[in-house]
Amino acid sequence: MQRASGESRVTFDLRDGKTRLGDLYQRDPCRVLFPKPELGEPPQAVMITTSGGVTGGDALRMSVEIGPGAEAVATTQAAEKIYRASRGSVACTIDVDVRVAEGATLDWLPQETIVFEGSRLKRRTVAEVVEGGSLLACEMVVLGRGASGERFASGLLLDAWSVRRPGRLAWTDTLRVEGETPDGAGFGTANALATVIGVWDAPQPHFEKARALLEAADAVRAGVTVVNGIMVARLLGEATAVRHATIRFLTEFRGRRLPRVWHV
């Protein structure tokens, strides 16, 4: 069966005092759109998958790089759907690489990934942030289509994160779900998990702001900590509640609305 092998790479640089597109590469089914940002906001890159979803054997790579002093926002056009894999199929793979240079700022804010019953996904996100760079990143995964009464009872989700600072690995984390949602790992009846990470040279003020916002969160379980200088926040619960809580948190934490594609 035909499988997709797509890639997108986008680079932003600071030129003449403004953040501008520096480089772009895209190969089907990966594409990048550049909507006009709101007045006073940085440029946006919107990642899309023209195939309409991902299934067993597909391989996608996405890369976002922000040059010294530049500022940008990267997101996705809609929720990414991971379809049921055919019998005997290998897992689909999604590799995300994020690089933030000195004095640069990136908000990596993709919309949720919906992992259908019977699907198999291996996703790896690697962020490299040099001293003086700032990164706010969010990933949300939904296990099964709860609105349709579907549970994630078979399949594989292997979702790995890592953050590198100059010359060292600062933080790494992997979620593995194979078969039933892991009640023993604290999921309970929840079918969605959002992870928000922040990388700054001085994380404490950001941590305190995030903690105050998450203490007021309702309808979800939420918490935040700092590990090796990396802020890590989690929101766990029913998919719609987690999405709404994540939107509220990110909007208040950033002090600006999320990209318009989040509200379509």
Rank of each mutant, 00 (worst) to 15 (best):
A4K: 10
S5V: 12
S5I: 08
V10K: 05
K18W: 10
K18P: 01
D28T: 07
D28G: 04
P29V: 02
R31N: 00
P35E: 00
Q44P: 00
G52V: 08
V54A: 05
T55R: 06
D58T: 03
A59C: 06
M62S: 15
S63K: 14
I66Y: 07
A72T: 11
T75N: 05
T76W: 06
A79P: 01
E80L: 08
Y83S: 00
R87A: 13
R87V: 13
G88C: 09
I94K: 11
V100R: 04
L106R: 07
P110R: 02
Q111E: 03
V115E: 00
F116L: 05
G118K: 13
E128Q: 08
G133F: 06
G149E: 09
E150K: 05
R151H: 08
F152V: 11
V163D: 00
L169C: 06
T172C: 09
T174H: 03
V196L: 14
V196R: 07
G198P: 01
W200T: 07
A202V: 15
P205I: 03
H206F: 13
A216E: 15
R221T: 13
A222P: 09
A233H: 10
E238R: 14
T240D: 11
V242P: 13
H244A: 11
T246H: 00
T251L: 04
T251Q: 08
R254F: 05
R256T: 14
H263C: 01
